[in-house]
Amino acid sequence: MNSLTRMWKKEWPLHLMLLPGLAFIIIFSYIPMSGIMMAFQKYVPNKGLFGSPFIGWRNFQLLMDYPDIRRVFFNTVYIAVMKIVAGLFVPITIAILLNELRREWIKRTFQTLVYLPHFLSWVLLSGILVDILSPSSGIFNQMLGWFGIKPIFFLGDNNWFPYVMVISDVWKEFGFGTIVYLAALTGINPTLYEAAEIDGAGRWKQTLHVTLPGMMPIIVLMLTLNIGNVLNAGFDQIFNLYSAPVYESADIIDTFVYRMGIQQAQFGFATAVGLLKSVVSFIFISVSYVLAYRLANYRIF
Rank of each mutant, 00 (worst) to 15 (best):
S3G: 04
A23L: 15
F140P: 02
V72L: 12
I27M: 14
F301W: 09
S243L: 01
L185I: 15
F140I: 15
G148T: 12
V164W: 01
S126F: 04
S249R: 10
Y163T: 10
Q111P: 03
V72W: 10
E194L: 06
P32V: 10
K107A: 11
P91K: 00
Q61M: 07
V170M: 08
L101T: 14
G148R: 12
A80N: 11
I79G: 10
A80L: 09
Y298W: 09
S278D: 06
Q263Y: 02
R203Q: 07
K9C: 08
I238W: 14
G214D: 13
T109W: 15
S126Q: 04
Y115M: 11
M215D: 10
I25A: 15
T112E: 01
I92L: 14
L116F: 15
G48Y: 00
G51D: 07
L223S: 15
L275T: 14
L276K: 04
Y181D: 10
F174V: 09
Y247M: 14
P32C: 05
M7T: 05
N59T: 07
R71I: 08
G175N: 10
T109E: 06
A86K: 13
L295K: 04
M1Q: 05
P245E: 12
A272L: 14
V44W: 04
I36T: 09
Y43K: 02
W122I: 13
F119K: 08
I218D: 00
A265P: 00
L223E: 00
A95H: 01
T5L: 07
M82K: 11
P190R: 00
W105M: 07
V280E: 09
